[in-house]
């Protein structure tokens, strides 16, 4: 475990700063205050979705949630339809979206613990089900309107030009730290991530913690979808799909062990920043789509090689 003494959060943050500076050098005008704020805003969406993913990965047992993308879309569509442009209905709509999210996650958790379906398979199957649910709800017509308050949260500057969504993200960061480091749930989560058997023998109700974790993950994904709606102002059927695998990448880049039992949300926040800056930089370079994809993939590989390596069998 010596390797992890070099704090991955610090590495990721340095990397984010480095990438941002590199952007300023390659492309004059890239590194300015407005663009930095925009990157923070974009990173916030990914990081909110990746918050739940962090919990799932820490919980171990090959924990992974591939259904977050579909739930992001579902959350956005529910609020789009129900609030329908009214600020008064926004809170009830948000509550419903979070509840539906939690329910989907709880079903994931039940499948994984009680039916012993591998997380990858369970959440993959759930992605299809949520996609089908979206089609049933919308019947192909995406009617509704974004609530003005959501738009204000994302675009209107609150303090020092910082939009509300970034502040919301920071608050979430604080809450996640409290959840992971200062609550019984957090202690139990790390315990089951390290070793399920010892956790169970020390009195942790493993199935309950796992179900709660997947429920939280889907709930945060739904929240991410609602906030994202404030940015896109519109919904479409694969709104959330591009967030699924990057959310996992953000968790790993942030130094959370994919095997579970070790990690932090600070790392994921930094990871989301790195990925978002990388994407923005590649967009700013006006390269063709193919080159952008190749560079993104190679950079991810390089990031993994720096600190995502597994221990050799010889050790």
């Amino acid at each position: 475990m010596k390797r992890f003494t070099l704090n991955p959060v610090v590495i990721a943050l340095l990397l984010a700063a480095g990438l941002f500076a590199l952007g300023g050098v390659i492309r004059p005008g890239f590194a300015n205050y407005t663009l930095a704020l925009n990157i923070l805003r974009l990173a916030a969406f990914l990081a909110i979705v990746a918050a739940g993913q962090t919990l799932v990965v820490i919980s171990g047992g090959e924990g992974i949630d591939l259904s977050v993308g579909a739930v992001v879309t579902l959350g956005a569509i529910l609020v789009f339809r129900i609030a329908n442009g009214s600020n008064a209905l926004l809170l009830p709509a948000l509550a419903l979206a979070l509840l539906v999210g939690a329910l989907i996650g709880a079903i994931n958790g039940v499948g994984i613990t009680l039916l012993r379906v591998p997380p990858l398979v369970m959440t993959l199957g759930m992605t299809g089900v949520v996609g089908g649910l979206i089609l049933v709800i919308t019947q192909g017509r995406l009617v509704g309107a974004p609530a003005p308050a959501l738009n204000a949260l994302v675009s209107r500057p609150l303090v020092f030009g910082i939009p509300g969504v970034v502040l919301l993200w920071l608050v979430l960061g604080g809450l996640m730290w409290v959840l992971l480091e200062r609550t019984v749930y957090g202690k139990q989560l790390f315990a089951i991530g390290m070793n399920r058997t010892t956790a169970r023998l020390s009195g942790v109700r493993v199935p309950l913690v796992v179900i709660a974790t997947y429920a939280l993950s889907s709930m945060l994904a739904a929240l991410g979808g609602v906030v994202l709606l404030g940015y896109t102002q519109n919904v479409f059927l694969n709104l959330g799909a591009p967030y699924t695998l990057p959310s996992i990448a953000a968790v790993v880049v942030g130094g959370t062990l994919i095997a579970g039992g070790m990690g932090s949300y600070w790392g994921t926040m930094a990871g989301a920043l790195v990925l978002t800056i990388l994407t923005s930089l590649l967009t700013a370079l006006t390269l063709p789509e193919s080159a952008r994809q190749i560079i993104y993939g190679l950079t991810l590989l390089a990031l993994l090689a720096v600190y995502g390596r597994e221990r050799g069998l010889r050790q």
Binding site: I248, I258, Q293, G297, L301, G308, E310
Partner: peptide, 17 residues
Amino acid sequence: RLQPIVTTFATSFVIGG
């Protein structure tokens, strides 16, 4: 010795690109 899920996700960009 990179983790298979994330690695093949990353290479899928390189190959698809």
